[in-house]
Design a protein around this nucleic acid. Sequence first.
DNA 1: GGTGTGATCGTA
DNA 2: ACGATCACACCA
Length: 214
Amino acid sequence: VAPELLNKVLVHDDPVAGRVAGRIVEVEAYLGTGDAGSHAYRGRTPRNSTMFGPPGHLYVYFTYGMHWCANVVCLEDGTAGAVLLRALAPLEGLETMRSRRLPVPRGPGGVLREPRGPGGVPREPRGPEGIARDLKERDLCSGPARLAQALGLDRRADGADLVAGPVRVLDDGLPPPLVPGNSLRIGLSPGRGDQHPWRWYVPGDPNVSRPTPR
DNA sequence: GGTGTGATCGTA
DNA sequence: ACGATCACACCA
């Protein structure tokens, strides 16, 4: 399913913020049984419960104390399996994405830190009001936590029905790449499920989080 | 282009 | 104690 999701469109019709959408350009597959890199490897828990549920739903998890990441649940009800959404090419609602992606620099203790540019020179803060116009388009959705933030996906979206919406995966007619890019998965600690070449991406797309993985 | 560091907290 | 990450400083 993972490479088949490439070039599909992820949309979030938010009743307040409006429609935000992007084309899926990078994904990773995760299983349960036999996949040491998966949240579901050690069985069902409250956190990964959605992964064991019916397919076509969204599994959203919290990690590193500050980030949300979103997956498409794929296997039959009762069997863990999901595809992590790693990068989108922004299509619609870019201003909304920019406002959600405002970086808030923090130092020790979570205290707001004065933003600094190259050379340690203080620069203008991007937030809290206004739009981060210097944030490049490729920085909006090029990473699992970035895309979740840009689309406004968090705990509230965990378990959501991807057919019913408001979060949906659409086919706009563009097929997956004939020859998708493929590599080992990103960010897994050595010896922990890194043996599976289950990362898939659209070759040449600038929004892919890392064009040349190790 | 690449590497190294610290943030920050739910989960097991 | 650590993680399916990120932003930033710094180096090449």
